[in-house]
Design a binder for these strands. Structure first.
Lengths: 200, 200
DNA sequence: TTGCCCCCTGGCACCGGGTGTCATTAGCCT
DNA sequence: AGGCTAATGACACCCGGTGCCAGGGGGCAA
């Protein structure tokens, strides 16, 4: 019972996942994450609740799109970074590049990030996703600096750069007509220079 | 049905909250957060499940103790910080001081933080608690630097110092015989200096 | 064409976290 | 003694998430 009706059951349903994501994003944005039940999302997407949980492990996951691919791309960028460049600069550059979205993708990204950074349940869930990112970055820093990925400095770089990136996202969301890359570069510049704007 | 039996019902039950916290911490540490039901925690503490949720809004909250007081103390420390000191140094110093626990409290703190940083559900929940901390720090930085608490730099300082503190906690937990303050100071030193250990 | 297998699907029952409601009971105050 | 307040526990309910099973379609082989 929905706008877009698929064929009968038993069909692989080309594009179902994307359709569910859209329905979820629309409903969550419209009425708030907690106020929408998974039943409603499933209905809107023309599938059963049970099937919703086959596409997404949790309700929150419907917001994130293919985040694993995003992390994988970050990892590739780091692997291919110029070893002559300082470690920290490589990490920041990789963050900037992995977040260099095409203009057409920006509205969707805004919608996603607004939900993630606004809705408490999604904000909490984000920590689990970011943990994957942190591990990737910490491993890279550890490899470059002949340290262990569980040592203080690799973890520190991972945690603080990611925190900086998240903060840049917040600034981007707050300022409708700004470029994400600008905020990211500014945040990393402040971070890597030890916050020169605060020398007083 | 538990070890410590209280009087009948209707009694204010002096110290019930602390007793529930202990029961929860013990059970979660022993068998894992997700593997323990709120029913079991309530039973172990000699109260009903419904009463458990009057003391703690969520299952996760039973792990955090009086975190609001912790945040309030951080805010007081910041309010009383020496204005002659640089902003960033004041924030770091406040973090170090608010985490300067008495030796007798350390085992409990270890137990708590180990759960929070290890159990996915608690790690996710932590983001909500840290958001309160971030707001406090961002407000302070904003006030000191004549900016708005929603601007990039105040938020950036809040997010990165908190990330550094969390990383210091991880290092402390990984190293049984170390002092928390040492890790905190090292993490902040790296952060405020722009990670001098990575100049290659 | 027929038959078989695989996989997607939905229905159902169940578990656990969290909440609203209500009756009960203890302590306190007059 | 009587009444008020507050904490408690029992119950029903909602919702996210999972295990299990049956059905149905598409593709492939005979």
């Amino acid at each position: 019972m929905t706008a877009i009706e698929t064929a009968a059951t038993g069909v692989p349903a080309e594009g179902t996942r994307a359709r569910v994501e859209r329905a979820a994003l629309d409903l969550f944005t419209l009425r708030g994450f907690e106020q929408v039940t998974t039943d409603e999302v499933a209905d809107a997407a023309g599938i059963s609740r049970r099937t919703f949980f086959r596409y997404f492990a949790t309700k929150a996951d419907a917001v994130w799109g293919d985040f694993a691919a995003h992390v994988a791309r970050l990892e590739e960028l780091l692997a291919g970074a110029d070893p002559a460049q300082p470690v920290l600069a490589s990490v920041c550059a990789a963050y900037v590049e992995v977040n260099d979205y095409a203009a057409a993708e920006l509205p969707l990204l805004r919608e996603r990030m607004l939900l993630i950074l606004t809705e408490p349940a999604l904000l909490a869930h984000s920590q689990l996703r970011y943990a994957e990112v942190d591990r990737v970055v910490a491993r890279y820093v550890a490899a470059r600096s002949a340290a262990d990925a569980t040592d203080l400095v690799p973890r520190l770089v991972a945690a603080t750069t990611r925190a900086a990136a998240t903060t840049a996202f917040q600034a981007w969301l707050a300022d409708e007509r700004s470029a994400l890359g600008t905020h990211l570069r500014q945040a990393f510049a402040e971070l890597t220079a030890g916050f020169p704007a605060l020398l007083r």
